[in-house]
């Protein structure tokens, strides 16, 4: 087993170009499980831990660039939490403290699980994923195009997730996640809701109820008129309707974790509650 530990981004990209058989290792919280279960084999690893550029985040104007190896703990605490509260809320729902100390946002994107908890938030924020490889250089991909299907992303061979870019919006944000345990549980339904007071709208995305994060387009258009902007006033009936429309966007399945029926119901309830939390009577 070989573990390459480059200390900068170029080194990491070069290592990946030299060793096409290499597997990227970030926090290892998905990868090590797969290796331990024998679902995946790998002999060469490129560890991102020492790559400084990937660990950092920065703000330019109303845009935040979050490095791929920023951990959940990093998202949950400190300034990012006040700038993108829904991302911090989603980060807090992930695993246990140990997992949150190790797991990274880039790993969540690259794994592209339908239950990845940051993914509905990134979708609601219309995030942009910054990717790079030694051969093709940098490219920017909308998160909607990046997430292709269950455990499938638009990453090419030898390509890294370098960062993800999200807007700093004004207005409240919410992330709600349903699981049958009060912590450390795989989501059976998740709802991310962000307000964009400047543009007068709500953006809503769902997790664990489709092959990837889904946007609730009908609910969003409804909110554009049903909510009074910029006061964010809305009626109780509007919340109910918003929940109903959001549930309409869900495409859940039955599995051993939950029934499709319950997942859809949970989306409706969570969307209604999220709406009530971000609006005023």
């Amino acid at each position: 087993m070989t573990v390459l530990a480059p200390t900068d981004l170029d080194g990491a990209l070069a290592a990946l170009a030299e060793r096409p058989d290499a597997t990227v290792l970030a926090g290892g919280t998905d990868l090590m499980v797969e290796l331990n279960f024998g679902h995946r084999r790998a002999g060469v690893f490129v560890s991102l831990r020492r790559v400084r550029e990937l660990r950092e985040w920065s703000r330019v104007g109303d845009e935040l660039t979050i490095g791929a190896t920023v951990t959940y703990t990093g998202l949950e605490r400190g300034q990012i939490a006040t700038l993108v509260p829904a991302l911090a809320q989603a980060a807090r729902t992930v695993g246990s403290p140990q997992i949150r100390n190790a797991g990274t946002i880039g790993g969540n994107l690259a794994t592209a699980s339908p239950a990845g908890d940051t993914l509905p938030v990134l979708s609601a924020l219309d995030a942009v994923v910054v990717c790079a490889s030694a051969s093709a250089g940098r490219r920017e991909v909308s998160v909607h195009d990046f997430l292709v299907g269950p455990k499938r992303s638009a990453l090419a061979a030898g390509e890294l997730v370098v960062a993800v870019r999200v807007p700093v919006l004004s207005g409240p944000q919410e992330f709600l996640k349903v699981g049958t345990r009060n912590a450390m549980v795989i989501s059976i339904a998740g709802v991310a809701l962000v307000t964009d007071a400047a543009r007068g709208g709500l953006r809503c995305a769902l997790g664990s109820v489709g092959p990837t994060a889904l946007r609730a387009a009908d609910a969003e258009s409804f909110a554009a008129t049903a909510v009074e902007w910029p006061s964010r006033r809305a009626t109780p009936e509007a919340a109910i309707e918003f929940g109903r429309l959001t549930a309409g966007a869900a495409r859940p399945i039955d599995d051993h974790r939950a029934t499709a029926h319950y997942r859809r119901h949970a989306v409706e309830v969570c969307a209604r509650r999220a709406f009530e939390r971000v609006t005023l009577r």
Binding site: Q89, R92, T93, E174, F175, L176, K177, V178, G179, R181, N182, A183, M184, V185, S187, V269, C270, R273, E276, R277
Partner: peptide, 16 residues
């Protein structure tokens, strides 16, 4: 909120 049903998932307000 952590100590309500749903825990870390932040799903419940007191009135629910």
């Amino acid at each position: 909120m952590l100590l309500r049903p749903g825990g870390a998932g932040r799903t419940a307000d007191a009135r629910h």
